[in-house]
């Protein structure tokens, strides 16, 4: 309606030859995207681990009731979580658009890739996120290369299901206590 159904491109300006790394060509745009991503990830990492806000957030996630008793306003924190998360998502969207253009539904598959990464890396682990993202990205593209790129999505989600059934805590998360009774 407003923006139209068809995919559009986002141009980064004039084309430059880019760099050669280990036999592959990486464009300047990709380099910039990589750097920006790493910086943002590092900043979020720092926010969660070092700042007071980050500690409150993790406390709230860990045991909401106890955090509330300690005076942590869960609603306010959740609000900021959504703001931050959405902002990061927005930046990711811009960076992705520079690579592959934009269409209204582009968020969905990116989101689901994100879910797989979260599950794989373990909900509570930040290191897991980094490694999970690398693994998922590599697997998706390798699988696409070997089996055919039309199966990329299917394979990602099959992996997700297997993970959820057999190892829901991912690689680095804590084993969830089973449905059984708490002490």
């Amino acid at each position: 309606m407003i923006f139209g159904d068809t995919p559009r491109a986002l141009s980064p300006g004039e084309v430059s030859p880019g760099l050669w790394v280990w036999g592959a060509r990486i464009t300047t745009t990709q380099c910039t995207s990589l750097v920006i991503s790493l910086v943002l990830l590092g900043a979020t990492h720092g926010l969660l681990l070092k700042t007071r806000f980050g500690k409150q957030l993790r406390a709230s996630a860990n045991d909401p009731e106890l955090a509330w008793i300690c005076g942590i306003e869960r609603d306010r924190i959740m609000l900021w979580v959504f703001v931050l998360g959405s902002s990061l998502g927005g930046v990711a969207g811009i960076l992705a658009a520079l690579e592959v253009g934009m269409s209204p539904a582009m968020g969905m598959s990116a989101l689901m890739g994100g879910v797989v990464v979260t599950v794989l890396g373990g909900r509570n682990s930040l290191v897991g996120l980094w490694i999970g993202a690398l693994i998922v990205g590599a697997t998706q593209n390798l699988a696409g290369w070997w089996i055919g790129s039309q199966w990329k999505d299917g394979i990602t989600f099959a992996l997700l299901i297997l993970l959820l059934v057999f190892r829901p805590q991912g690689l680095f998360g804590h084993k969830p206590h089973s449905v059984s009774v708490r002490q």
Binding site: M112, L160, L164, P168
Partner: peptide, 15 residues
Amino acid sequence: RDDYFVVATFGFQAV
């Protein structure tokens, strides 16, 4: 696990 069931069904339908 309960929270992940929706995600699992999402994965299922995608496959």
